[in-house]
Nucleic acid binder design. Structure first.
Lengths: 179, 179
DNA sequence: GTCTATATTGTGATAGAC
DNA sequence: GTCTATCACAATATAGAC
């Protein structure tokens, strides 16, 4: 999987605009074609089917996330900075974020290593402990997706909830209490 | 919103069976009707539209969750027990769980107080701190939904990740380090 | 409360000419 | 690589008889 170029990249860009502007329902082959000034069947000369097009969309999202998260790793206190970056990315691209996280991941359609690259900053921020990193990822994803789905009560202080989770997760491991 | 009875309850039960067996795509008005031995248009005598039927499904899920989680509160160490119960519920009803968590919540369609009832055990386990409780909920939801979407690497030790998160979240609050 | 018949709309996708 | 024409299908929902 190499970076897209030419017409293929234009199609993915159009699809992304539509998705982010109108959600998954707006992402139809006809709408994508319209936006490019061509007819829907022409898209099938570039992508075998809609799934492949969506996979390219997801892959682009991962590449972007990997770059974004890598940029905030340099902080001395990386976990809070990463949490902010994660939340900001999800909030800025809510529909793409959902597309990326809610379906089974087709790893074959991803550029080599980009999944690991997107995860690496967090793993480093967790001192290399993969379990803690996965817990932190789950926390961040849970906060982001519940926020996007408007599932917190209207009066909830989400900044405070993020802080509570980040503080707990970055504290040094204590004696395990769970059995 | 009172408990459903009669035909309405039968319809919801049929819908739930279909959803859990075949996912959201299997949940069509025709399939629901077929399962009850009637024709699809007859369903509209009981529910104004499909949304209302799904809302009833979601409401039933919350009632069930509230009962399940309340039952494990009595433990001396409630947080790990709640985490296990949460994960078990999501795993046992994956499609209903996704339906309940991925869409905006229509609170008017829920039985009075059931949302708070489902959340109460966790709030108690977090010593009444709503921010910590929300962080814990986000962690659990993140773990559950990433697991359901098969988003963890195949070799990830999910039990260990759950433990890492629960341990971190039940530790006494330390001096905040995030800014 | 159930039926039959049907409207309406939208979708992804293919064939074959240019 | 784009077009026109069209298929094939599935979905929710309504009207009106019984």
């Amino acid at each position: 999987m190499e970076p897209l170029t030419g017409r293929k990249a234009e199609i993915v860009a159009a699809a992304r605009d539509l998705l982010e502007a109108g959600g998954p329902e707006a992402l139809t082959m006809r709408a994508i074609a319209d936006r490019l000034g061509i007819q829907a069947p022409s898209l099938y000369k570039h992508f075998p089917d809609k799934d492949a097009l969506e996979a390219a969309l997801v892959a682009a999202g991962f590449v972007e996330q990997a770059e974004t998260f890598a940029a905030v790793t340099r902080s001395r206190n990386p976990l809070p900075a990463l949490a902010r970056a994660y939340r900001a990315w999800a909030t800025a691209h809510p529909h793409l974020y959902v597309l990326m996280t809610s379906r089974r991941l087709d790893r074959d359609s991803l550029p080599e290593g980009v999944e690991a690259a997107a995860a690496a900053p967090l793993l480093k921020a967790c001192g290399g402990d993969p379990n803690r990193a996965r817990a932190a990822w789950a926390f961040a994803h849970g906060m982001a997706s519940l926020e996007l789905a408007n599932r917190f009560p209207p009066d909830a202080d989400l900044d405070a909830a993020w802080r509570a989770g980040v503080d707990a997760l970055q504290a040094p491991p204590t004696t395990p209490r769970s059995t």
